[in-house]
């Protein structure tokens, strides 16, 4: 059963998130172990269904995760390092991202969060544009183009996560 099946939806990169969340609340009410009474087996089953639901909403709510998931349903799994390594990225892209990472490391050494934020804004912008490319490719069922685009999104996302981790480090 796919995450989309749980919500009775056809696989798609386009979702009405508000409607999805309303439906999630309805299903959560129905399936939560607290509603399953005291029977051990029923509770266990409810816990499993709730866990599946929680997993599904997490993926579907987020446009980035959702795009990766739609691609996965089309047979390309990019979520592990091994499988992603098989996607050949253009050399110039890799060089560009490498430079950005080095710049971020330098900023981290000086502990300048605002500079890191400026870099993150640029990267997020690039990520969003690339994500749109991926979404367009997925809509027309162009798996190779979607794979290349999401391959890039992966690098951008990693970069943004690193900025988050840096911010957290400074906060604590």
């Amino acid at each position: 059963m796919t995450h989309f099946d749980l919500f009775n939806l056809a696989p798609s990169v386009d979702l009405d998130v508000a409607a999805l969340e309303t439906q999630h609340r309805k299903l959560a009410m129905e399936w939560h172990p607290d509603r399953a009474g005291s029977d051990h087996h029923a509770r266990r089953l409810a816990a499993e269904k709730s866990a599946a639901l929680n997993d599904a909403i997490k993926v579907l709510k987020d446009p980035v995760r959702r795009a990766f998931y739609v691609l996965e349903l089309k047979g390309v799994k990019l979520d592990s390092d091994q499988s992603a390594a098989r996607v050949k990225m253009p050399m110039d892209f890799l060089e560009e991202i490498m430079e950005q990472r080095e710049a971020l490391d330098a900023v981290k050494a000086t502990r300048k969060l605002d500079v890191a934020h400026v870099m993150a804004v640029k990267i997020r912008d690039a990520r969003d544009k690339t994500l749109e490319q991926a979404q367009r490719a997925l809509r027309r069922d162009d798996v190779p183009a979607a794979t290349t685009a999401l391959g890039r999104v992966r690098y951008y996302t990693r970069f943004l996560e690193e900025v988050d981790a840096f911010e957290e480090e400074l906060l604590s």
Partner: peptide, 8 residues
Amino acid sequence: NSAIPIAQ
């Protein structure tokens, strides 16, 4: 901050 119950 993952919603519980959860399995992974």
